[in-house]
């Protein structure tokens, strides 16, 4: 565990808690894509399969429970909570995210490190996490503007990915044979998807005008 990894996990936890608190307190999910949240729920469900079979540390188990709990409750709020569901932008949130799930599954069946059930699902979750933000970014462009909490959510998510890349660079230089191509490539692709969002986020912050 290095400072980049810890900061990355904290930023990631903070991003999902910001979103959950926003939806819970103002009972609105305007501007939020439920498809991205569903993809994240699938990512965590297929990646944290070992949560009940092997115990590593309190930290590890606690963080997995936070990510699983927050992503599933955000989906529950947006799908089944009456007040919140009313504010869901169904017409605009039309990304066909099941195609993302299918293509990531096929890719995981083709490219993985070992052909075992856990390994394929774990690789699938890496591929899916890389593209999970797409429905949210498309919704962002469609609705032309973004309320600051959703902007902060995406900003923090991007920050978590950036810190993970720093964590991998740090580990590459400090641990002898730390090489994980699939993790690195998927992590890089995911971070690049945030690049243009960061650009506009920074511009709006610099010019102190609404992000659109």
């Amino acid at each position: 565990m290095n400072i980049f990894r810890l900061a990355g996990d904290m930023t990631h936890m903070f991003s999902v808690l910001v979103l959950l608190l926003k939806i819970h307190t103002i009972k609105s999910c305007a501007g939020v894509s439920v498809k991205t949240q569903e993809l994240y729920a699938i990512v965590f469900a297929t990646r944290y399969l070992d949560i009940f079979t092997s115990f590593v540390s309190i930290y590890n188990t606690f963080m997995k429970l936070v990510f699983l709990g927050s992503s599933f409750s955000i989906v529950w709020y947006m799908r089944y909570h009456k007040a919140v569901h009313r504010t869901y932008d169904r017409e605009q949130d039309t990304f066909r995210h099941w195609f993302l799930v299918l293509s990531c599954l096929l890719l995981a069946l083709l490219i993985h490190e070992k052909f075992t059930f856990l390994e394929v699902l774990w690789t699938f979750s890496l591929y899916l996490e890389a593209v999970a933000i797409l429905p949210q970014l498309v919704l962002l462009q469609r609705t032309r503007n973004i309320d600051n909490l959703t902007g902060q959510y995406i900003f923090l998510l991007g920050g978590y990915r950036g810190l993970y890349i720093l964590n991998w660079i740090y580990r590459y230089f400090t641990e002898p044979h730390f090489v994980h191509w699939i993790t690195w490539i998927t992590g890089l692709v995911q971070t690049l998807l945030y690049a243009d969002f960061f650009y506009y986020y920074f511009l709006s912050w610099k010019n102190n005008k609404k992000l659109n």
Binding site: R5, R47, D50, S54, T116, E119, W122, Y164, H180, T183
Partner: peptide, 10 residues
Amino acid sequence: PLQQRMHDEL
């Protein structure tokens, strides 16, 4: 091994 990686990072 996968076990290690699954424990290693979130």
